[in-house]
């Protein structure tokens, strides 16, 4: 099911690329659209995906959109990329970021790199991340603290060498407040406006 959704989105994106960018532009990779999401897309023959397959994909997208519109999808989960790590989260979760990270307690942040979002009946998979604005993940920073004291002990036998270091590194605790699907699943045109504002 998710594969079909993917393939539909792929096809849609492919066609839009065709219309907006010339082949030369793509070869030079100068366009702003050449972000990580749609970098050298593997050439897929549009005709290879048959009509009825497309129709089926559209049907699935419609069913997902219907479910989201009626708020029948239940609890959503997502896989987000945060500070070099991926977390599988659902509303109410606590995750910890290790190392220095500027946000302080009480900050409300939105996690933008969503790799995957899913509910009981469907999964939306990004390649590698979902379109900006499709899924919004809100979170609150609730604690910034230090880890327990870690002992780094080194010793070489018969060499009169011994070192002992103690280390505490910063940790940040984050509470996930909400995960929401905010756009219709097959909408690809809106993403373009936001691309210039995005950092990644």
């Amino acid at each position: 099911m998710s594969f079909l959704v993917q393939s539909v989105r792929h096809v849609l994106r492919h066609t839009t690329q065709r219309t907006t960018l010339t082949g030369a532009m793509r070869a030079l990779s100068l366009s702003p659209g050449m972000h990580q999401q749609n970098k050298p897309a593997p050439v897929v023959d549009v005709a290879a995906i048959t009509k009825d397959q497309q129709k089926e994909c559209q049907l699935i997208c419609d069913r997902i959109n219907q479910q989201v519109a009626k708020a029948e999808q239940g609890r959503l989960f997502a896989v987000v990329h945060l500070c070099g790590k991926q977390f599988k989260i659902t509303p109410g979760d606590i995750i910890l970021v290790e190392g220095y990270w500027p946000p302080t307690i009480g900050d409300e942040i939105s996690l933008d790199k969503v790799l995957l979002a899913g509910a009981r009946d469907f999964t939306i998979v990004g390649r590698p991340i979902l379109e900006p604005g499709l899924v919004t993940v809100k979170a609150t920073v609730i604690e910034k603290t230090l880890t327990h004291t870690k002992t780094h002990f080194k010793k070489k036998r018969r060499k009169q060498y011994m070192r002992i270091n103690f280390q505490r590194s910063p940790n940040t605790m984050i509470r996930i407040n909400s995960i929401e699907v905010t756009q219709t699943v097959d909408g690809t045109s809106k993403a373009k406006e936001d691309l210039s504002r995005r950092l990644f």
């Binding site: 606590i94 910890l96 004291t149």
Partner: peptide
């Protein structure tokens, strides 16, 4: 915080949705 070693960097009440 100094008295606790964390075993996981994640806590959830709902381990699996699907």
């Amino acid at each position: 915080s100094s008295s606790l070693r964390l075993r996981k960097m994640w806590h959830t009440d709902v381990p699996s949705v699907q």
